[in-house]
Amino acid sequence: MARVLEVRDLAVGYGDEVVLDEIAFDVDRGQVFAILGGSGSGKSTLLRTLIGLQPPLSGRVHFTGIGPPALALTPPRFGVLFQSSALFGSWTLLQNVLLPLQKWTTLPADAAFAVAMGRLRLVGLDRYAHHLPSEVSGGMRKRAGIARALALDPPILFFDEPSAGLDPVTAAELDELIRALSRDLVVTIVLVTHELPSILQVADQCIMVDRAAGGIIARGAPRELADRNVDARVQAFFRRQPLPRTS
């Protein structure tokens, strides 16, 4: 299967502070790849570095076959769903989805409208197109964020904690949507999460990062890690148990 993302010897952090080091992994086309870790493990810092919001301290992030690093003059190479959805609050859901289409395509207004409505229909929100983000639920905001991230048909989507703060049913629906995007649109999805049901439901492959260890502590299919990995930190994570205290 074609490789779309290669990460080699990556160190991420702030200033002189290295949060995670020697990060290396590959993501294949159409795969759902999860970056796991507890709160404060550095997984969001890693995500910010992958999407270019934060420069790496060292190492490289290479997107295969999808052009050079994004500049303000080129359309974004990937879609991002932020943890807070980051929808523009004074714009309707439709206007939020229309924004990248108006900026980066030459579509006439009615065609852009048709594409934006199509994206909203895909995530089940076309009936709420003219609502403001404050007028819909948290789960709907997440789905609208996905519609916006999908607007330009990016080959890779990055999701930061997509199901955080959602009720189990809404979270399961979102997981189903992520699987459908991967299966039917053949979009590669890299997601950062610590929601156990989501990890087991949607991820094909994953890495687990730990700040105290300073890097990756486990990698593989989620079910494999949950059942066979002997690392105490991995087992504590998957079994939702406190870490054994070290004296």
Partner: peptide, 14 residues
Amino acid sequence: LYDCARGGDCAREA
């Protein structure tokens, strides 16, 4: 996936 029969009215003009 994008079929209008999935719900909503996609014959609507902008």
